[in-house]
């Protein structure tokens, strides 16, 4: 297992729900929990992943997500069991959609 932490600057998210959880920690899948975080222009990401050595890919996938969506003022926790970048992006979008009530 590897633990990764990233921070990205992003426009502020407008939460509809207090928290949102998406996905399951099953093989090739992951769970993503989004909740309010500080400061308002920053997205903090904490990842636990079963696959070692993919830090740069994680960083690129989430940087792209943070650039395209208002995710500032959130903390995102991820428990990953070997999801592909495509699955990660999909789950991030789903989780953010739940968090903002679809108003992303």
């Amino acid at each position: 297992m590897e633990k990764l932490e990233f921070q990205f600057k992003a426009a502020s998210a407008t939460p509809a729900a207090g928290t949102a959880l998406c996905g399951v920690v099953g093989s090739g899948n992951l769970e993503i929990l989004i909740r309010p975080g500080e400061p308002a222009d920053t997205c903090q990401v904490h990842i636990r992943t079963s696959a070692r050595g993919f830090g740069r890919i994680w960083e690129a996938v989430i940087a792209e997500f943070a650039a395209r969506h208002p995710v500032g003022g959130t903390r995102i926790d991820i428990n990953d069991m070997g999801a592909t970048p495509a699955v990660v992006s999909l789950r991030l979008s789903q989780a953010l959609g739940d968090y903002t009530g679809g108003a992303q």
């Binding site: 297992m1 207090g18 928290t19 959880l21 920690v25 769970e31 929990l33 909740r35 636990r48 992943t49 079963s50 428990n79 990953d80 069991m81």
Partner: peptide, 17 residues
């Protein structure tokens, strides 16, 4: 989930939980 942590028994075995 937002008030819970994955099991330390799995973390020690290198499993995310």
């Amino acid at each position: 989930p937002e008030t819970s942590e994955p099991s330390p028994h799995l973390a020690v075995l290198d499993i995310p939980g």
